[in-house]
Measured scan of single mutants.
Amino acid sequence: MQRVNMIMAESPGLITICLLGYLLSAECTVFLDHENANKILNRPKRYNSGKLEEFVQGNLERECMEEKCSFEEAREVFENTERTTEFWKQYVDGDQCESNPCLNGGSCKDDINSYECWCPFGFEGKNCELDVTCNIKNGRCEQFCKNSADNKVVCSCTEGYRLAENQKSCEPAVPFPCGRVSVSQTSKLTRAETVFPDVDYVNSTEAETILDNITQSTQSFNDFTRVVGGEDAKPGQFPWQVVLNGKVDAFCGGSIVNEKWIVTAAHCVETGVKITVVAGEHNIEETEHTEQKRNVIRIIPHHNYNAAINKYNHDIALLELDEPLVLNSYVTPICIADKEYTNIFLKFGSGYVSGWGRVFHKGRSALVLQYLRVPLVDRATCLRSTKFTIYNNMFCAGFHEGGRDSCQGDSGGPHVTEVEGTSFLTGIISWGEECAMKGKYGIYTKVSRYVNWIKEKTKLT
């Protein structure tokens, strides 16, 4: 034993070699072989497995989906700052455009905790909710729209109204504003409101030439003092309507412009014939205590009207009353817009006519005020429907199939267009061939041609 100890002390290297040989010859039971080890760690190889990531292109799944990435790591994937920024906006807080917040056709661009709407022409605001041009839906104005110097929408209202708090709607500024039905039992019968379409306001006024200088022999019209197929109006439903009495009662109609003036057809009036105007009328054979009678003290036909040349060209006249009318729910003026808007309103496509005229061709006159909704007829169809001249200051309205029309005794009465609950004068009943005849239409004086003249002559002093 002493000898062994001496050998170990003198030859430590020998001992180490012996131990190493023993270990190498022993069977290893701690580690699995290569094949079995792979069965336990069965993990798919990654895209760049075996390579240094710093030297390969980034992978979106590896960089940002398996674990949260930084902007720089995302930049490695896209290799483009702009594309990385677009991805980053949604990656950080989701897609803010998912709810489609942009209105009126706006395009949404996502941002971090926010979004941006790219608005089409005519709109602005956070969600493109603000109209900035009158060309689109009248700028959301209830009545009139004008573009300011910086191309912003400025709404306005006709006389007797003021802008509401929203700067879009119009509200009454006087007790009985024009064009409004205020009798409670008839307010439910107000005709369907007309909503502004998209309009090209630059070209809204037709490029028409008034044929002022045409000389033409007097034409022989049949029954051209021209509501057939209409309905009984309720008291106060058309408070701007008046009836004219002269040699015979209810020979023509008219509309209240203001307390002192009536507008009617020029062919209705004769110099030297006494005319009485009755406002607030409903049943011409009954006294309903809503009527107001006034005498006409002055007749002003349009300066281009000449019955000797043509009885229905420039067929418009103004009547001055001896005493002002007292405005109330049964006696209310009709609204008159400017030339541009009167023309736009007419193009809405349908209007209402009213009167006490004959209820059928050569038949009896109506006792109760009649009204009828009539569609506008395109000019080409209008011209083809008659052998008589249709001037540019006239328009056609009615039904091709016949059966409904204005008729004798309705002449001078109103053709009105309702705009968001307020009625505007767009025409004056003038003439036609018979009444409600198939293929024939009622012919009306186009008020847009005469609004400046009306307003100039009827100013209240």
Rank of each mutant, 00 (worst) to 15 (best):
L319M: 14
P239A: 03
Q2Y: 11
Y312S: 04
F251T: 07
W261V: 02
I262W: 00
D315G: 02
N36P: 15
F31T: 15
Q237N: 08
M6R: 15
E73Q: 08
I299R: 06
T264F: 02
K188F: 11
F121I: 04
P324I: 03
F388Q: 14
T158H: 09
G398V: 03
A192T: 15
Y201P: 08
E323G: 04
C108Q: 01
K457P: 02
E98Q: 11
E323Q: 13
T264P: 01
H282G: 09
C108M: 00
C102D: 00
F395E: 00
S354E: 02
C268F: 01
F176K: 04
A37D: 11
D150I: 11
L19F: 13
K39S: 12
I210S: 14
L321F: 00
K440C: 10
K339P: 15
N304W: 12
P197D: 08
F221W: 13
A9P: 11
K387P: 07
R83G: 12
C170P: 01
Q370V: 03
E420W: 09
R373P: 10
I256W: 01
E320V: 01
I275V: 11
E259A: 09
G58T: 15
D249Q: 12
S350N: 15
N36R: 11
L14S: 04
G106Q: 00
K152L: 10
F144R: 01
S204L: 14
S148E: 11
Q2D: 07
T271F: 10
T381S: 05
E129T: 01
E193V: 13
V353G: 02
L19R: 02
T389Q: 14
G125R: 00
R364D: 14
P301E: 06
T461I: 08
T389R: 13
I429N: 14
S350K: 12
C155A: 01
I214T: 15
D131P: 10
Y312P: 03
R364E: 13
N258K: 02
A164H: 11
D338T: 11
I112G: 15
A173C: 06
G349T: 04
S187C: 06
H34T: 15
C18G: 05
K311D: 03
V277T: 03
L319C: 07
N104Q: 03
S114C: 03
Y22V: 05
K234N: 07
T209C: 06
V451N: 03
Y201R: 12
K137M: 15
Q167V: 05
S423I: 05
S156T: 12
V153M: 12
E79T: 15
T332S: 10
R294K: 03
K455P: 00
D95K: 15
P324A: 10
L346P: 02
Y450T: 01
